[in-house]
Every structure is written in C-alpha cells, then in structure tokens.
C-alpha cells in the first residue's frame, strides 16, 4: 500500500525527470538535418538549459516533499 506521501514524492520525481527529458531531448538537443546547420547552434527554446537544471532540482526535491509532507491524524 503506497501512502499519499509516497505518491506525492513520486509525482514530483516524475515531473522532474519528465522536465529533464523534454528540455534535453526536445528543446535543447540539436536534432535535425543537416546537423551542423547554423540553425542548431541555438537551443530550440531560449533558456531550455535552465529548464533542464530546474528539472534536475525538482527531481531531487521529491525527497524533501516526502519528508515534509504533513502528517495527518498522527498516523500514516
């Protein structure tokens, strides 16, 4: 039985990893043809690297969410 607290932490973790994957693969990485084209000297979206870093941070924040999730009724 997974507690509400664990669900919340998992949700935050998943959100962080999803943001990492999306910002890296879709927004920052220069997929396309020809790969050396000057179009790909920029990330698809400005500040995509910042999103990636925020993703990493959110993923680790899951631990804080797990510990600080308010305890209800004294028992889990």
């Amino acid at each position: 039985m997974i507690s509400r607290r664990a669900w919340a932490a998992l949700l935050v973790l998943t959100a962080g990893i999803a943001l990492m994957v999306v910002s890296y693969l879709v927004l920052a990485a220069p997929w396309g043809f020809p790969p050396e084209s000057e179009k790909f000297s920029n990330p698809r979206l400005a500040f995509a690297p910042l999103l990636f870093i925020i993703g990493v941070m959110i993923a680790f924040l899951a631990a804080v969410v797990y510990e600080l999730w308010p305890q209800r009724g004294g028992k889990e």
């Binding site: 050396e36 084209s37 000057e38 000297s41 920029n42 990330p43």
Partner: peptide, 19 residues
Amino acid sequence: CDNAPCVKVCPVGARYKRD
C-alpha cells in the same frame, strides 16, 4: 572546418558554422 572542434565544444553556441 566542416567538423570544427571549436564549434562542437562552444558551450553557448557563440562559435558556430554558417550554412
């Protein structure tokens, strides 16, 4: 260079190769 090492390593895309 077509496969320019400087373009590959530039962390911010300041060094780039035009078409």
